[in-house]
Design a binder for these strands. Structure first.
Length: 681
DNA sequence: CTAGGGTTAG
């Protein structure tokens, strides 16, 4: 106990002994000075005593009560007593700067950011000046927590006006806020304007870049930091290592590892855990293992990281071995461990193993964790046991969004579009949908291909304010295309500004026109896309080529194909050749089609030969038809359709015996088919 | 008094 708190407790004692003696001469001022100490020492029990004393002795009704109550508010707030603080605060005749400050701080600290900001705004509106430099960081953090970029920017301005612009703490808070809101550029500006960035500033930048999917920028920051002469600390290490892992940049990862050894930064377990994770993510399980072996202390995170590492590198047995060792060491798995094990079982998929881990989750009492529940729903859906997914769902709290998202995508996976749509309607009574919800749900509407339903979900999205996002717009374009309204799809497409149109959105509109036979529109949209600076990918090439072939645009198709060969040779896939063969073949240019196949830089697939065969049927070309058939019979021996196609060519030109022979061959194969297929499975 | 940091996660 230091001198100050000793004198405080003396004062408190004196106060109460005087009270016991019914000495009402104890002044409000005295109580106030005690309260001031209560706030400084975060002493809740003393605060309560003073509060009770004040009530008993009618101090609250005096004209001094504003000052007294605002001190009382502060004392409760500092002690984290939200309910008491609020009660006193609401009874204040006048809300003072002090009371606002302490309430804002309390709410920001206990996670009620919205409440904190409400009070902050009210404080400004009621004519108080801006907060002082110790309150700004709380307000700024609250803006960041709620992703309120506009308000955050306004607070930034206010801080500048009040002359707090150079404060390091406020600067660092601003960095974190902008990063949280996804505005990396503004964060960078603030960082560059800082006169003396501390290690915290650097770390905030590094981790912020990573959280905004800019791992390369995070690494650049790290290198700048190393060159600037500021010493890295533990937080730097655990911020930069995930970036190395994400980029699989083993060189930088090793550099960081060296730094840890040289500067003795390995005092915390989290640093070693991050190193293990980095090596695992870079695909170096042997090095991860050796870091792990060198560790004296290990916690559940270490084990989980190793287990994940083995899963990530496709070594399920290694992961299982780790589980056994972990159990042997007496370390209990947590929800994270089980969620990732279950996710691994889902991606295999391995129902039996998944059920074992479900059991393990129950034994370790984590089966009602949202992450675990979600992983279970996903697991059972991917194993085609969606009824079990529903069982898990029925036990969840339902107020969370993620399990619903999992069941929706599970329904899509099991081709239960109707059910997905029904579930979504139920979901709306319980939880708030987010972007991921629609990512899972929209394909259901595309499967239903019902224009009325398409319009329903579209109008819902607009009402709910979801219409801006590219990904969701893409889903809508796809739905409208499949439901047959290219016009509506195009309107949605036009609603996305050019800057926000990504390859997937372009792909959706192009394929929409292509699949409905509007090859010319598909083509011109495609060229618009290229002009707007979007690099086409295999998928867009396929759909636009498809469009050309469906619309009989032979020369356009050839031009496009040659453009591909010239500019995007690495994109060329077997599908593209199949489209071209189909295109040339339908136009009767069979020889050209055949030459194209022969020029292919890789083994032609059955689809390529199949396209030629199909064209040979239309144009009754036996010679090439037989050549194509020879290949498809080899590549796809159990597809009876191919035999029928060749038979049709023979029949068309009157070679009845050959047609009959092929028919027999097909029949014999059909007899073989069932046992053969069961072996193939 | 106030700022950054580890394992899941499509």
């Amino acid at each position: 106990m230091n001198g100050q708190s000793q004198s405080f407790s003396r004062t408190l004692k004196h106060l109460f002994s005087s009270a016991a003696a019914a000495d009402n001469t104890i002044s409000v001022a005295k109580c106030e000075s005690v309260l001031y100490h209560c706030a400084n020492t975060k002493s809740v029990s003393s605060t309560k005593k003073i509060h009770a004393y004040a009530i008993r002795n009618g101090l609250l009704s005096s004209h001094h009560s504003t000052h007294f109550l605002s001190l009382l508010t502060a004392a409760y707030a500092v002690g984290g007593q939200a309910v008491f603080a609020r009660q006193v605060f609401d009874r204040l005749p006048q809300r003072t700067l002090r009371s606002y400050k302490s309430m804002i701080r309390m709410y920001a600290e206990n996670g009620s950011s919205r409440e904190a900001l409400r009070l902050f705004v009210e404080m400004l509106e009621s004519g108080h000046s801006g907060p002082e430099k110790y309150t700004y960081p709380f307000v700024i953090r609250a803006c960041g927590d709620l992703l309120m970029l506009e308000l955050g920017t306004a607070v930034h301005g206010l801080a500048l006006i009040s002359g707090c612009g150079t404060d390091t703490f406020i600067g660092n808070s601003l960095l974190a806020m902008y990063m949280n809101c996804g505005d990396t550029e503004r964060a960078k500006q603030v960082f560059e304007a800082m006169r003396e960035p501390t290690i915290v500033s650097w770390n905030t930048m590094i981790s912020g870049y990573l959280r905004n999917d800019k791992a390369a920028a995070a690494l650049m920051m790290f290198h700048e930091l190393v060159n600037s002469g500021v010493d890295a600390d533990c937080a730097t290490i655990v911020s930069v290592l995930p970036a190395c892992g994400y980029l699989k940049d083993l060189d930088v990862g090793r550099e960081v590892h060296l730094l840890v050894e040289e500067k003795g930064l390995g005092k915390k377990l989290s640093v070693w855990n991050a190193l293990v994770d980095m090596y695992a993510k870079c695909g170096k399980m042997d090095e991860a293992q050796s870091v792990y072996d060198s560790m004296i202390d290990r916690d559940v995170v270490t084990w989980t990281t190793m287990i994940n590492g083995y899963i990530l590198n496709g070594d399920v047995n290694g992961a299982l071995e780790m589980c056994r060792l972990m159990q042997f060491e007496g370390v209990r798995p947590n929800a994270v461990t089980l969620a990732s094990l279950l996710a691994a079982c889902a991606s295999l998929p391995d129902l039996k193993l998944g059920k074992c881990f479900h059991g393990w989750a129950i034994r370790h009492n984590v089966e009602s964790d949202v992450n675990v529940e979600t992983a279970l729903i996903d697991l059972y859906a991917k194993c085609n046991y969606i009824s079990l997914s529903f069982q898990v769902l029925s036990k969840t709290s339902k107020k969370r969004t993620v399990p619903w998202n999992a069941i929706l995508s599970g329904c899509i996976l099991n081709e239960r579009a109707r059910e997905a749509i029904e579930l979504f309607k139920q979901m709306l009574f319980e939880a708030k949908p987010n972007d991921a919800t629609f990512k899972s749900l929209l394909p259901a509407y595309a499967m239903e291909a019902d224009l009325q339903q398409a319009m329903n979900i579209h109008s819902y999205l607009i009402r709910a304010g979801f219409f801006l996002r590219t990904q969701i717009a893409t889903g809508l374009v796809d739905i409208y295309s499949k439901a047959g309204s290219l016009e509506s799809g195009h309107k949605v497409f036009n609603g996305i500004i050019e800057k926000n149109r990504d390859i997937v959105l372009w792909g959706a509109i192009v394929s929409g026109y292509a699949m409905h036979g509007h090859g010319n529109v598909a083509l011109s949209l495609f060229y618009n896309m290229v002009m707007s600076g979007i690099k086409p990918n295999e998928v867009t090439f396929t759909s636009v080529l498809h469009g050309c072939s469906h619309a009989g645009l032979v020369d356009d198709g050839l031009t496009l194909f040659n453009f591909m060969k010239g500019s995007y040779p690495l994109c060329l896939r077997t599908d593209h050749y199949a489209c071209m063969v189909d295109l040339l073949g339908r136009a009767g240019r069979l020889q050209e089609a055949h030459n194209l196949i022969k020029s292919m830089p890789f083994q032609p697939s059955h689809t390529v030969w199949g396209a030629l065969l199909g064209a040979c049927v239309i144009h009754e070309n036996v010679e090439l038809g037989e050549e194509a058939a020879k290949w498809v019979f080899e590549l796809e021996p159990y597809n009876t359709g191919n035999y029928i196609l060749l038979g049709n060519i023979y029949a068309a030109i009157g070679r009845w015996e050959d047609a009959e022979k092929i028919r027999c061959r097909m029949k014999n194969l059909q007899l073989l088919k069932s046992p053969a297929q069961s072996v193939l499975r």
